[in-house]
Design a protein around this nucleic acid. Sequence first.
DNA 1: CATAGTGATATACTTTTGTATACTGATATA
DNA 2: TATATCAGTATACAAAAGTATATCACTATG
Lengths: 131, 131
Amino acid sequence: METKESTEIKAPLKEHFGNYMVPVRDALEIFSGKWKIPIITALNFYESCGFKELERIVEGITPKMLSKELKFLEENLLITRKVEDTRPVTITYSITEYGKTCRSVMSELYRWGTEHRKKVFNIEGEAWESC
Amino acid sequence: METKESTEIKAPLKEHFGNYMVPVRDALEIFSGKWKIPIITALNFYESCGFKELERIVEGITPKMLSKELKFLEENLLITRKVEDTRPVTITYSITEYGKTCRSVMSELYRWGTEHRKKVFNIEGEAWESC
DNA sequence: CATAGTGATATACTTTTGTATACTGATATA
DNA sequence: TATATCAGTATACAAAAGTATATCACTATG
């Protein structure tokens, strides 16, 4: 037995994981916040929606946040914005084929989150209604 | 053909998805923010660490944030805090068996995030060094 | 002409998240 | 005695995220 074990210096994360964190952060940026997942889910379900439609489907969102998040999702190639030459002008937001690949991440989050709920709150699916 | 299609009212998300979002939010709460994933990764790698050790391993974190996040992770049963009766008192943070289940979520985030990087920035793994 | 719908933007505000810096009390070392 | 380490807390501040409310230009309906 050596005393070395207790005095050993543990290296910073970077030395072991390099830039492992970078893509994890990238993914997290897409899904975190209050509104991105609801918007993606809505467009996954309805394929295409107008701005006012999304305002009603994604309950509680303000136009400022909706506008901001749509811009973000478009920049990240998950949705498209098409301007239709009608009166008044209508704008159609649609999910892209690439946007649909989010489902695998969301279903893993759902799976783990469901287990977590059971573990921490000891709550099963049926009890969600009361939360 | 009916004009109904354009006037059809799309229902709010809740009607189609119920509380599907709740566990997804729960999972996201564990992984979002700047420090939770680095701390979990550090304790996954080293099994056990002291407070000052974590401060050095998780580069850039302030004691305030470290203290706050450790409390959060302990409340969520992902880590444990053990007080050792030494002089000066040392405190050992360890990952729990349950905490290790985070790896499946993190590896899915890593997988999707890596694809996303390729798609949006057209950057491969090797180029991360410059980010 | 008034009202309502389209897709937003502007301003002001609150809350949450994170940073910066200093400090505590106990112990051990130089 | 001065300095350093341990595990944090206290205080102040800055930045990001989100809310609330009003407004814009345009068109269509009553």
